[in-house]
């Protein structure tokens, strides 16, 4: 079947099998390997992307379900060559070690900060509660999201 999916602002029309999962469509069909594919059971959350503006687990969705919808992946966080504050925060606060969980963590964190620009540590922990990190523990990830909250991008300050 043919689907047209807008990913990070670009519309892609592709021929896919109905059983193709969204995560594999992004990684294999489009070559956007920033989105990671982990547990395959919607537990680990490394496959989180935005679907029409909300974070979802792309290993548990069909590419066909995204036909006509807008997807944003970790590749779409950077704007005009400038890292998103969430990406910068993960660098500043050592929010990653192996980096496997990072794309999903960052997509969820960006979504949280868009709706709640000054979250408490508890709110950050709740937001990422469906995502697993097996390296650093969660302390530095929470710090990284806090850092992003305290250093919003310039355009977000003025708008």
């Amino acid at each position: 079947m043919q689907i047209t999916v807008t990913v990070n602002g670009t519309a892609y029309t592709e021929e896919v099998e109905p059983r193709l999962l969204l995560v594999h469509f992004l990684r294999q069909t489009l070559g956007l390997t920033g989105t990671h594919w982990g547990c395959d059971t919607s537990n680990c959350g490394t496959c989180v992307v935005w679907f029409d503006g909300k974070p979802v687990k792309s290993c548990t969705m069909l590419a066909a379900m995204a036909d006509g919808h807008e997807i944003r992946t970790v590749e779409g966080l950077e704007r005009d060559g400038a890292l998103d504050p969430v990406q910068q925060g993960f660098m500043e606060c050592h929010g990653l070690q192996c980096g496997f969980c990072t794309p999903g963590m960052m997509m969820t964190a960006r979504s949280l900060l868009d709706t709640n620009p000054d979250p408490s540590d508890d709110e950050i922990r709740e937001a990422i509660s469906g995502q697993l990190c097996r390296c650093t523990g969660y302390e530095n990830i929470v710090r990284a999201v806090r850092w992003a909250a305290e250093h919003p991008a310039q355009e977000e300050v003025t708008t």
């Binding site: 919607s42 709740e126 469906g130």
Partner: peptide
Amino acid sequence: IADPVVRNF
């Protein structure tokens, strides 16, 4: 029920 991301869909 599940987690915040799963609850979105």
